[in-house]
Nucleic acid binder design. Structure first.
Lengths: 215, 215
DNA sequence: GTCGTTGGTCAACGCCCGTTGGCAAACATG
DNA sequence: CATGTTTGCCAACGGGCGTTGACCAACGAC
């Protein structure tokens, strides 16, 4: 989950910590529990919330540290720098279902329902969207999510896999537009829609983008 | 155009300038030409570009002034503060056509075509989108554009004007999602689409959101 | 008990930001 | 030419930022 911690530059992780215990062949835990795990988790929680509500620049390390109840220098020790913190705090997993197993006529509804649920239970998605709009590096991170998670799923659903990138991208325009207007801009008429209304309206759109013949 | 210059706080415009010439009943020009108009325009141009490419926080007054070839203090004198500069630089006019005169079956294609053209010839739209995603005040500004420009246009096009807010909002999710992925995130498969392809794919979507019966 | 390791605080550095006020040149007006 | 206004530059301010390194307390192994 912390695999790609170096995100914009390659300079981060000066204070990276290796696990202490050299595997005494005891329990099968690959990394031992550290005494500071609670603090680390508190930092990540605070960071996720700040990044989601304030965006990258306005989410200061000092504010995140204060939210977590510790000193700003702890953030630096555990995550190297601000970029490392963002990389550690925001590791999006869309939990894409197996689209091959979904009845073809339900694809649109299933996708919209899935994304609505993901977005409302995981504030990392809003954080990533905000930073993606603010930052070139954030935009590249979003491209990575599209490439590594959405595209493979689309390939299993599209009739012609060669069309998968375009079709997945079209669906993404609709789904990200919904997220932007509803969770970031808070456009009143969008925020007022119920989930069922959104699925009823957007489902056919995504359905068409995914499987309808090229217009 | 500079009407609502005070944007976030009410503190701006300390150095607001009134026109000097007290209307000598000469030419019908309401405000006389100032010697500094070229500089003012250069500042606004540089500000629009910086806000569009860097977003609000990273677009510094110092960088904008350097781009315009003048001293940062000039920006303060002419536009009060950073918020005043943004308000002056970004005054979006979507130039909405009279949708009542558009054949009902062409509504979707006309709207998508119009937005594509607007977006590609006016970098203020990208600037506003970036700031809207970064900033609560920016988001409110986008809400204002929706309320004052999109909604009135939608009322003349929707069969039932009572449904206009929801229908205009749905169309906005699709159009802003396109702008976000194409002009901000630069998602490769979206950037690769031609304008005609976009119109062919998104036109029916917007058409349905605007006039199709409630699902 | 002793001592290395870990968790955590504190004070500060250097930088860049928005912003301010003073001053010099260019201009306009009589 | 003399005077007031506009245009512009310069140097600085106060503050917040990311970041660093010294220092202390608690813990764990032997």
């Amino acid at each position: 989950m912390l695999a790609n911690a170096c995100w914009l530059t390659l300079a981060g992780m000066h204070h990276s910590q290796a696990p202490r215990t050299p595997e005494p062949s005891g329990p099968p835990a690959p990394t031992a529990a550290r005494r500071s795990d609670a603090t680390r988790a508190a930092i990540l929680d605070a960071a996720r919330e700040r990044f989601a509500t304030d965006g990258y620049e306005r989410a200061t390390i000092r504010a995140i540290a204060k939210d977590a109840g510790i000193d700003p220098s702890m953030v630096m020790r555990y995550y190297g720098n601000k970029e490392g913190l963002f990389a550690a705090a925001v590791s999006v997993d869309l939990r894409m279902p197996d689209l091959g197993a979904v009845p073809r006529d339900d694809l649109g509804r299933v996708l919209v329902t899935h994304f609505l649920a993901q977005w409302e239970e995981n504030e990392q998605l809003t954080a990533l969207l905000r930073v993606g709009a603010a930052n070139r590096a954030g935009a590249e991170r979003m491209q990575g999510v599209f490439r590594d998670q959405l595209l493979p799923a689309a390939r299993t659903a599209c009739p012609d896999p060669e069309q998968a990138p375009a079709r997945a991208a079209l669906a993404t325009t609709q789904l990200l537009g919904l997220a932007l207007t509803r969770y970031v801009l808070h456009l009143p008429p969008v925020a007022a829609l119920t989930r069922d209304e959104i699925v009823a309206w957007l489902g056919p759109t995504v359905q068409r983008y995914m499987v309808a013949p090229h217009p």
